[in-house]
C-alpha cells in the first residue's frame, strides 16, 4: 500500500473545518445570536468558511489519487 501525500490530509481537514464554519455562518444568518461580535454584519464565517473549504476541497481532489 502506498502512502498518501501530506497535501491530501491538509485538503481533507481544511475542507471539513471550512465546511462546518460555513454552515455555522449560514445558521447564524438565519438565527442571529443575541450578542454580536465587531464586524459581525460582514458574516466572516460564511465567506471565510467558503474560501477554506474551496481551498481544501481543491487540494483533496487534486491529490486523492496520488502517492507520496
Amino acid at each position: 500500500m502506498s502512502m498518501k501525500p501530506i497535501w491530501y490530509f491538509v485538503g481533507l481537514i481544511l475542507f471539513v473545518i471550512g465546511g462546518i464554519i460555513f454552515l455555522t455562518g449560514i445558521y447564524q444568518l438565519i438565527n442571529p445570536p443575541e450578542t454580536n461580535k465587531i464586524l459581525s454584519e460582514l458574516h466572516p464565517n460564511i465567506w471565510w468558511g467558503v474560501i477554506m473549504a474551496l481551498f481544501g476541497g481543491f487540494m483533496f481532489l487534486k491529490t486523492r489519487k496520488q502517492t507520496a
Binding site: 462546518i20 464554519i21 455555522t24 455562518g25 445570536p33 461580535k37 465587531i38 464565517n45 471565510w48
Partner: peptide, 14 residues
C-alpha cells in the same frame, strides 16, 4: 475574541 463568531473561534483556538 473581538472579531470571531462561533465556528471561527474554534478555528482560532485550534
Amino acid at each position: 475574541a473581538r472579531y470571531y463568531p462561533s465556528g471561527l473561534v474554534g478555528l482560532g483556538v485550534t
